[in-house]
Each structure stands twice: as C-alpha cells, then as structure tokens.
Design a protein around this nucleic acid. Sequence first.
RNA 1: AGGCGCGUAGCUCAGUGGGAGAGCGCUUCCUUGACACGGAAGAGGUCGGGGGUUCAAUCCCCCCCGUGCCUACCA
Length: 885
Amino acid sequence: MRTDKAQLAKTYDPAITEEKWYRYWLEKGYFHARTDAPAEPFTIVIPPPNITGSLHMGHALNNTLQDILVRWKRMQGYNALWLPGTDHAGIATQNVIEQQLLKEGSNRYQYGRERFIQRVWQWREESGRAIIEQLKKLGSSCDWQRERFTMDEGLSRAVKEVFVRLYQEGLIYRDNYIINWCPRCQTALSDLEVEHEEIKGHLYYVRYFLVEGDGYLTVATTRPETILGDTAVAVNPNDSRYIPYLGKELYLPILNRKIPLIADEYVDIAFGTGVLKVTPAHDPNDFLMGLRHQLAQIKVIGEDGRMTAEAGKYAGMDRFQCRKALLGDLEQACYLEKKEDYSHSVGHCYRCKTIVEPNLSRQWFVRMEPLAKPAIQAVNEGRVRIIPTSWEKTYFEWMHNIRDWCISRQIWWGHRIPAWHCQACEAITVDREEPRACQQCGSPNLSQETDVLDTWFSSALWPFSTLGWPDKTRDLEVFYPTSVLVTGFDILFFWVARMIMMGLKFMGEVPFREVYIHALVRDAEGKKMSKSRGNVIDPLVMIERYGADAFRFTLAAFAVQGRDIFLSEERIQGYRNFANKVWNALRFALMNLTDLCGQIEELKLADQHHMETEDRWIISRLNRVIGQVNIALEEYKFNEAASNIYQFFWHELCDWYLELIKPRLRQSTPSKLVAQQVMAFVLDKSLRLLHPFMPFITEELWQQLSVAGEGIMVAPFPKTQEAWIAPQIEEEMSFLMEVIGAIRNIRGELNIPPGCKIEVVLDPKEPGELAIIERHQHHIVLLASVEKLKIGAWDSTAKKAVSALVYKTEIFVLPPTTIDWQSEGKRLSRELAKIEEELRLVEAKLSNESFRAKVPRAILEKNIQKEQALREKAENLRKSLEKMS
RNA sequence: AGGCGCGUAGCUCAGUGGGAGAGCGCUUCCUUGACACGGAAGAGGUCGGGGGUUCAAUCCCCCCCGUGCCUACCA
C-alpha cells in the first residue's frame, strides 16, 4: 500500500483514493461487528432508504452523520455496529413497476398477482440496490454482512409474529370505517400518509327544498358531488333560526330523495348558513354523525374515483367531471344560490399527489392508545432522549392525540396480512402459518386476505427484526437496545414513535437510548419549499467533483441543531480546499521525514525539556482541540467539531507551527529531530481527529506516515492529555504571534512586498515581554521578513518610523523606501478616531456607579484593563502622528 | 385555527447577557523549495422594526413586519 514518500502529488485526487481504501476496509472486515468482542457495543440501525430511491441530500446528510458517529465510536474502542438495509416501500415501489407495465401497454391486473410480485423482486435485484452502492461512495462504514431488507424472510416472520400477537390481544381489529383512499394508487392510506395542501376552491350554496311547503334551506359545500350521497341535513340544536324546521324532511336536489333534518352539536352555527349536509360515506365527521343518528351510508364515489350506480345519471363519471356536470344541473334548476371563492386544505396522496377521497371501507386497524402510553412514558422518563429536546414537545403532542392506525393496503407489493377468510362461515382465522381449517367452523375452505400491510408496519420493527427477532439471537442480546437513532424530523411520527411503541411492546425495552433529529436539507423535490432558485445539488455529482471527504465535511459543518440546511456549492469547494491543505501539510511533512527511521512514537512528557516553545504550544493546542472535538461529538454538535478541527489544522498547525519549524528542519541538529517527532506526532493525531469526517484522505495520508497500526480507521481516537496543556506557553505564543502580526500589519498597510526586507526595532517595557522577544528573535525575523531586528529603545530623532503597540512592547518599523507619509498619517488618524471612540465607551461604562457596584469582578477588571490598553494605544498613535508631521 | 422555527457582512451560514464570527466573494501585495484548491494584509454589519427587563441586550420578555414548516374532522 505504501507509495514512495517523496512522490505525493501536488494536489489531492479523491477518485483513486476513495475506491482503493473502501475496498481495503472491506477486505479487512473493519465494518463487521463481532458478537464475541469484549468491548462495549455501540449500535446504530440505518433509517432504511427506499429501494426506489437514489441518494439525495437528505440521505447524504443522514448517513454522513451516522458514519461520523460510528467511526468515532469504533476508534474509541467500542464494538461499533452500523446495521444497514433497505425498505421495500410498498406503494412507491409498486408505482414504479406499474409505470413500467403501463409503458408496455399492460397493467397489474392483466399481469396477475404472482407474476407481478416476481417482477418486483427481479427489479429490486437489478435496480433496487443502487442506493446501497451510493452509500458506499459516501464512505459509509456499514456492516454489510448484516444488511437487511424489510421483505427478507426473517423480517417477514417478525411481521407475522407481531400481527398475530397484536390480533390475539385485540390490538388489531378489522372494521368498516371512513378512511383516506387514493383513487390512483387504489389503496387505503393512513392519516399520516395524507399531505394537506391549501387549495383555492369554491364554496357552493345549494338549496334543499322542504317536502312540505315551498320553503328551502341553503347548505354550503366545497364538494358538491357528495350531495348525491347525502342522507341527512343537520343544524345545531341551539340555532334558533332552524328550530321550527327540526324533524321535517327535505328533498335532495336532483335525485329528489327524501332526507331528514337532524340536530347535532357538531354543526357550527357561525359557518356558512349554519346548515350542514351529511354524507356519512364520504366525510369523516359526517360518518361519525351518521353513526350517532343511524343514518344510511350511501357510497356514491367508487374505489376508482368514478361515481357509482347510486349516483343516478352521473354513474360512471369521474368525481371531478361529476362535480362540473352536477353544478351545471344545479344551476339550471335554480338549486345553486351562489358561489364564493374559498380556500381550504385538501388531502393529497403522499406518494402520487392525487387528491385523496374519504371513503367508507372495511380495513384493518391497530388500536394505538395502549401502545402509545408506555411510549410516552419512556420519553418522559428519559429512557429515550430526543435531541434536540424541543422535538419532545412535538412527539408528546402527537402521541397524546393519537388515533388508530389503518394498516391495510390494497396493493400487492408488501407483507400479506396473515388472515384467512372462511368461505363457509365468514369467520377470520389469523395465524403465523397458513391454517388448515377455519378456527370457527372447521371448514377447510379458506382464502387468504388479499390486503398487504402498511410499509411502516414493518419499519416499526426494524431495530429488533434486523437483529433476528423473533428468535432469541446473540445479535439481539449484544446490540439491542441500540445506542442512537439518527433521522430527520419528517418521520418522527411515521417511524420513530412507532418504533418506540413496538420496541417496548415486543422487546420490553426501548429500541434506542437516544434519537438525534437533524435538519432537513432543502431540495428541489418541492418537499421543503423555499426561495426556489433552482439550486438543486446532487450529492453524487458533488462527490465526483470535490471528493466524498470534502462533501462530508461540508455536511458536518452545516449540521447545526434545529435549522434547515441549504447547501451552496461554493462552500463545498471551500472544504475541498481544506482537504488539499491537509494533503499538502502531509506532503510537506513526508518530505521532511525521509531521514527519520523507525515508527512514529508517542511523545513522553519527560522529553518536553528538549522541546521548543512552539513544540509545546502545538501539543498543548492539539490537546485542547481533542477535548473540544470529543465534547462536541458527545453532544451531536457536528458543526462545532468540524470547525474546531478546521481552525486548528489550517490556522494553527499549518499557518504557524509548520512555518515556525521550517528552519529547524533544514538544519541537522538535535532540534531537528524533535521538530520531526513533534510534527509527525501532531499530524498523526490530527488525522485521527479528522478521520470520522474525512475517512478517505486521512487513511491515505496516515498510511504514508509510519505509524504502528493497520489503518487509521481502527487506530485509537485521540484523548486529551491534560498534562500537555500549558497555558503559559500558549500565552507566550499568542504574544509572539501578536508582535509578528503587528509588524505584518504595518508591512501590509505600507504595501511593502514580502521580498523587501525591513528594519524593525522592538522596545519591550516589561521584562517578561523582553524575555520572550529575545528568545524568539529568529521567529520574528523569519515570519515578518525582517532584515535587521534591534531590541531596545528607539531614538526618535533618527529616521522616521511607523509604530505599533502590543501590550507593553513598542514596535517600530523602518520602511526601506520612501513611503507616502501623508496617507500613512491619514490611516493612523482613522485608527486613532476608532480607538478614541472605543475608549469613550469604556470610560462611560466605568464611570457608571451602578455598573461598578453590580458587575462581576472579572468583567470589571477586564474593562479596566481594556481602558488602560486603549489609553496606551491612543497615546502611542498620537506620538506617531506628532512625529510624522 | 393551534404549535414550532427563522430573519446577523454582497452570498451561504455559525455564535453569545459583558470585546460582532466563518467559508466564499471583494480590495491591495506576493510564482518565498507543502499547498495559487496557496501566503500576507484589508474593506464591509444600527445582529428585521418598536417597546420592556437589566448596571449591561444581537442574545431574555412583549408587540409588529417578513418568511418557512408541522399538526387539525370546519362544511
């Protein structure tokens, strides 16, 4: 694997590297978690992507975060398992195949159930695995040996087991109820699968004439076609306007059926005319009202979205066509009083966006309340922690108002409900295996339920079904409950809540200890509408263009708690540059380590006396950053972890440390060896810190460094060593950096080119500062491009100089050429004005009595010091200006 | 209707009850033997508007404006 050290390319090329190392990790089996490992387990189950899907930004973020956590924990020595898999996605997948059939001029009914399902399986083998390959491109360290699919034999067994047990306990029942029906998908949907959207429609006012006399009542409706299914008209019993009419009958317009006027508290007196038409078969509220008043349920809209025979002359028409036709007829016959613009929210199928029809239908339901209770408790008691905690409120809100879950779907692709209908007595037999005879009458004449289960029914079992349940497996024993679930809030109810319920019910234990809810990436799919600027970003294109590492790092840097993400390609480019910076830092190091024999070793505290200030400084800083990164990851603050590493690596390690040691590396003294050792040590640790975020480049570079170990992904993650943290060294360095900064600042302002060396006089009025400056003269000379450095007092009568003040050290830069003293003077005046303004503010603060009385001592002292410093700076500037004129 | 969130530099976004930050972009200078996907310096913000609490508010509270989302059985 090792290439010649000196031959590292000038820029990093991700394409080859990523391929190579992913294969290496797989070959080594690093992703596989063993059940006999003594280490504490750390488990994540993947939110299984749909087999119809291809990797979008949401997946990319979700899986990057999981991979960061898993790689980090694995390096920390945990027995880390990231269990991958895919979801059969019943309706979505069925739609894909049905589209194919349509193109072939066929449909699923012509095809037949058996053949259709075979075809789906075949398609799944061919195309349904694409997303797995895409996850690998991202660098996901999933245990592929444990990959699962919701339609696997084992998981199907779990589904049956759960169904049977819930049925036996009375938690699953079958009933005639009003449900959401998608006429295009030809199936029932759960409440959650309906997306509400505000639609600009109309409110139609329709007259219902009294059977006796010639009066009428006016009813307002948004769905006139349902008039055909009305079986009553209702008013509020307290509505004095209509009390005289109670008990009378009305003629249904057009059909002229007689229907009663009933009284029900549900009716809102203030809405419309206060008269409500009641259609029990096509409206959830009317359905309930129908039950209360024993009204007939007349279905006028069929499963295909067309009007039924009950609709009279409209039979066979599409529901919207019928609306149009009916409105025409109503108008013509003077039934239509008026029409108002009205916007209201209308349910759409979440899979195909067709307008959902509330329809009376016999379906299977799960009784949710008994399952929800313990799940509420689990979160309440902190057995499941939701992070950020603000989502708990949303969770509780939904769980407290939970309604029964319609789980049957009239499609073919999915887990077929394990229930058999007796042809003889109509009884239902529910069992794990196909029963031989009816439980009720013993008849062998049985036929299996044709409905399949909601896809989310099997997803709800995912954390334990994937580990082998209902068998008592070693996997379950070791890895359940899982450690954390990483997901977006859009499936908090769909999935997270249901997993908690099912986990508690069947495992007697929560499915995960923590749930980390991350942001949603806004995409072009219209999912999260925003200022749509056509900013669609395809993760695979980004990986192709900038490398998986840069892409992952960007996502991590953007992964802030509680906010949506809108990626910009420029930002990815920025982190690609960072990857290149890392590459070149190692390139530099490797070029300077060729003569270092043996492996890189841990540094010993006892050896620090051989070290220079910069050595101890960078090690101290490293240890602080290690702490920051570990804490940030502990708290799921991915952006903080990422930016801490970024800042450290680029702006401390590269900008300062590597620059500072360059002269030492060119000598051949013992000091060179120390610099080499420290540099290698710090780079080794930095690469490890970076590895969970940028797995590929860090592996590639780490393998070039001679560190003991097979690979960085199985190397221990750094831990802070407090003993290396040296505050006084850090202070010394930051003083030095400020002095250098001040000189550079003057150079920059005077536009003195780097090639042009300058003369500098430093006059430290404080012994400590003098000592530091004396000790680091060579650094100042190097990093500020100084020709001649003098330490001591400055003779103001001699040459003109530009000065600055850092703490108690006066800095004089003697420009080599004639410079524009006038514009320099202007600059200084501006500077002085700024400082005086600041000084004024601080003085005002300090002269405020109640401020001095109430402010904490530390803040007070800070302000006093600040005032002092500003005074000195201002004084210094005034002196400079004086000399200039 | 209820609930949640957002509005900080030209753009994309961090952050904090006590000195306004990053990346990109912009200006000036620099092909210095890791890196021009680079180095050095710099400009740029009344932290949406108004009020309140506080010695102190970009941050906490209230109102308003703009904007996004979730939940809901108003015809």
